[in-house]
């Protein structure tokens, strides 16, 4: 089953008097449980594509279905809700909330959902922190962690709500290659344990070996995949 169906997606950015065509007509289907990598040079439209899929940016043209629902016609409220329940995010710069410690950062999306009790939330967060191997650092603030550790927290935070899709925009770009590899290992592992669809972008050929499918993008077009 296709968890994501993209047809004729175009995204333009107005830039002064001209328009930047960041994505120029993309058709892409992604199946549930895939571990898929989007690769392309800088400025090729990877971030743009992921943002549209992640419902944090809107398409200029085309149709995008996430979990069967057409997102191009949803309002901000519904999109926000969809992000909260269906999508997890991992960022290149980790983007943890600095005033919260590790466990609070992981709990954060669950608190937003307002569906679980405090103890349920704590239990779930602890489980994920354990899975990403940060049990000892649960009460540390992000500033007290290394880059790799921070990205692990981000992975735990992305997965804590049990999303259908995790989007990771260049998750290893700010890490050294060893740590980056560990992070990808971890993501891969999580993909297997939770059967969550992972889409991550990269411009680093070395990380492609982790993906079970590679989509190549250039100048806003899909070249291959």
């Amino acid at each position: 089953m296709n968890i994501i169906e993209i047809k004729g997606l175009k995204k333009d950015y107005p830039l002064g008097k001209t328009t930047v065509n960041a994505v120029r007509g993309v058709d892409l289907n992604i199946e549930e449980g895939e571990f898929i990598s989007i690769i392309g040079p800088s400025g090729s439209g990877k971030t743009t594509l992921l943002n549209v899929i992640g419902c944090i940016d809107t398409a200029t043209e085309g149709s995008v279905k996430v979990g069967g629902a057409e997102i191009t016609i949803m309002n901000d409220r519904a999109l926000t809700d969809l992000r909260l329940h269906k999508i997890g995010f991992i960022f290149q710069t980790f983007n943890l909330i600095p005033v919260l410690d590790v466990i609070e950062n992981v709990e954060f999306p669950l608190l937003l959902m307002k569906k679980h009790t405090k103890s349920e939330i704590r239990k779930r967060a602890l489980k994920l922190i354990e899975e990403v191997g940060l049990k000892e650092h649960a009460t540390h603030r992000p500033a007290e962690l290394s880059g790799g550790q921070r990205q692990r927290v981000a992975i735990a935070r992305a997965l804590v709500t049990n999303p259908d899709i995790v989007l990771a925009d260049e998750p290893t770009a700010n890490l050294d290659s060893v740590t980056g590899a560990q992070i990808l290992e971890l993501m891969r592992e999580m993909n297997k344990i939770e059967n969550t669809t992972f889409i991550f972008s990269t411009h680093d050929e070395h990380v492609l070996k982790y993906a079970n499918r590679v989509v190549k993008i250039k100048d806003g077009f899909i070249m291959e995949g």
Binding site: G54, I56, D76, R77, T80, R83, H85, F89, F108
Partner: peptide, 16 residues
């Protein structure tokens, strides 16, 4: 700003 972007991406509503 980036923090706001993050929490909005994670799923916090505008109102919050």
């Amino acid at each position: 700003t980036r923090e706001i972007g993050t929490i909005r991406a994670i799923g916090m509503q505008k109102r919050d």
